[in-house]
Simulated assay, not measured.
Amino acid sequence: MEQDQITTIRQFNREYVQLLGVLDRRVFDTELPFPEARILLMIFEQQSIRPIDVAAALSVDKGYVSRLIRQLEAKQFVKKSAVCSGWSEQVIAIDVSWRCVGPTD
């Protein structure tokens, strides 16, 4: 596939997703938007996983996954391994002290 075709498809996807409001939706009436919830579920299912593997499994840009993981870290849902040589080698796991995600009133 040519680069201009890829660019056109990505632009269409961004506009369509924005139009539908998919990324703004909250999951099961919680504070988590869909993309964060999807990544959190993947981490939970795998027990621990490298961010690069999350990006590959979801076919999502690595930079976008990195930003979402930082948001999950800020909310204290996940922790990244401290010892690593780079982003691709970090391991993320559910923060054992995480609070329950419940409905937002």
Rank of each mutant, 00 (worst) to 15 (best):
I43W: 01
D61H: 15
D24T: 06
I52F: 07
R38S: 10
L19V: 05
G102A: 11
S66Y: 13
C100L: 08
I9H: 09
G21P: 00
L20Y: 12
I6C: 00
R26P: 01
S88P: 02
R70H: 13
I49C: 05
S59H: 14
D61I: 05
S81N: 02
V65P: 04
K62W: 07
A57P: 02
S48Q: 14
S88M: 11
N13R: 12
R10T: 14
Q46K: 15
Q18E: 14
L20H: 10
T7G: 03
Q18S: 12
S97T: 05
E31N: 09
G63C: 14
A57R: 15
V60S: 05
K62F: 11
Q5V: 07
L41E: 11
Q11W: 04
K62Y: 13
V54Y: 02
F34W: 10
R38V: 14
K80W: 01
E45R: 10
R99G: 02
G63Y: 15
R14G: 03
P33H: 14
N13H: 07
R25F: 13
P51Q: 11
T7D: 13
Q47D: 09
V60Y: 10
Y16R: 05
E36Q: 13
A57S: 15
F34G: 02
R14N: 13
P35V: 09
I6F: 09
R50P: 01
V22T: 13
R38E: 12
A82Y: 01
Q90N: 05
E45P: 00
D29V: 09
V83Y: 05
R70G: 01
W98G: 00
G86T: 06
E15N: 09
K62L: 07
Q90I: 01
Y64I: 08
Q5T: 05
P33N: 15
D53H: 11
I9C: 03
Q90F: 03
G102E: 08
V22S: 07
D29Y: 10
I43K: 01
A74T: 03
F77G: 00
T30D: 02
D29L: 12
V60K: 06
S59T: 15
R25M: 12
I6N: 02
Q3H: 08
S88A: 15
I9F: 14
I9W: 09
V27L: 13
L19I: 03
V60L: 12
I52H: 08
